[in-house]
């Protein structure tokens, strides 16, 4: 039997909604996704990394309280004191491309500061392992039936943004910049040992400048004893500030000045905004589908922790 005009109109509207969301139906119980951040100068602010961190933290806390209730308080005792956005690197600022000031370049060189991290928890107790699996599943269910799926899907979305980001910015920058940077650094007395290699890939390591060390390197020596029936706690990872040596500082300051004075830093930010918008457009259906769910889950997470 042929469809009525009203039925056909309804089908067209439904198809339009389906297509506009990239083939994914929105959850009608939740408010529609607000995509306006994509037009700002921080397009990736559309990605809800803070909310993802809240969901992660709530699930961990509920899981760890469950473990403590089963006689295993170790995870609860060592967990971080607050949520942490696992995709902080998707906040694209001047600092995403290197030091943002001469003072920062002088202090940090080409290094990075590190946040603290909890220790590794190693079980040699099958009863703990059973409790871990049980409490993990219970904690996800405490959030919602599909919380784990949404959580994993949002990590996947974050990686769809993160992985192509820097390669696409490089492509968008054009091929003249390595020569521009090389000339500028040379004018400040810094020459690489291999100019051809620098032009192919402008790497500070080509200047034979000693760099600092990784503050957490000593942790690599920890080995649990693995006595049956025990739960072992490794060393916590302290927050650390990177301190560049004098030669690294001098090169980093020159590098910063060259990026600033040649317009390279400004161009990187301009291209970065374009690339972010392109990546959002490519993944718009996922934002439409997942952002309302993540916002909802984050609220439930806050409620859950408040009640826990």
């Amino acid at each position: 039997m042929p469809a009525t005009r009203q039925q056909f109109a309804a089908l067209v509207v439904a198809a339009a909604v389906l297509l506009s969301s990239g083939g994914c139906w929105q959850d009608e119980r939740l408010p529609a996704a607000d995509l306006s951040a994509a037009e700002s100068d921080q397009p990736f602010s559309l990605f809800l990394g803070e909310e993802l961190g809240q969901i992660d933290y709530a699930q961990l806390k509920v899981r760890n309280k469950c473990l403590a209730g089963e006689g295993y308080p170790q995870n609860l005792n060592i967990m971080l004191g607050e949520p942490r956005n696992p995709f902080r690197h998707l906040r694209i600022t001047e600092s995403s491309f290197g030091p943002a000031s001469e003072a920062e370049a002088r202090r940090i060189g080409f290094g990075r500061d590190s946040l603290s991290a909890p220790p590794s928890v190693v079980s040699s107790d099958p009863s703990y392992d059973d409790a871990y699996d049980r409490c993990t599943a219970e904690a996800w269910r405490a959030l919602s039936d599909d919380s784990q799926d949404v959580y994993y899907a949002y990590f996947e979305l974050g990686n769809k943004l993160s992985e192509p980001l820097m390669p696409l910015i490089d492509e968008g920058m054009g091929s003249q910049w390595p020569q521009t940077l090389l000339s500028c650094l040379a004018s400040k007395g810094h020459g690489p040992r291999d100019e051809a290699a620098f032009l192919k890939s402008p790497n500070p390591a080509l200047f034979d400048v000693p760099v600092g060390t990784d503050a957490a390197a000593g942790l690599d020596f920890w080995e649990p004893k693995r006595m049956p029936g025990t739960i072992e706690i490794g060393p916590a990872v302290p927050a650390s500030e990177y301190r560049a040596g004098p030669a690294e500082s001098r090169l980093a300051v020159a590098w910063f000045q060259c990026r600033r004075d040649t317009g390279m830093a400004r161009e990187q930010l301009r291209v970065a905004v374009e690339v972010q918008r392109d990546l959002i457009e490519k993944n718009e259906h996922l934002f439409v589908e997942l952002n309302p769910k993540v916002i909802d889950l984050a609220k439930q997470s806050a409620d859950l922790i408040g009640a826990a």
């Binding site: 060189g109 080409f110 910015i169 390595p178 890939s201 790497n203 760099v211 590098w255």
Partner: peptide, 14 residues
């Protein structure tokens, strides 16, 4: 290129 163009060392630490 992604990191080297932006002035981040690829030198090995650890």
């Amino acid at each position: 290129m992604a990191a080297t163009l932006v002035g981040i060392a690829a030198a090995a630490l650890g």
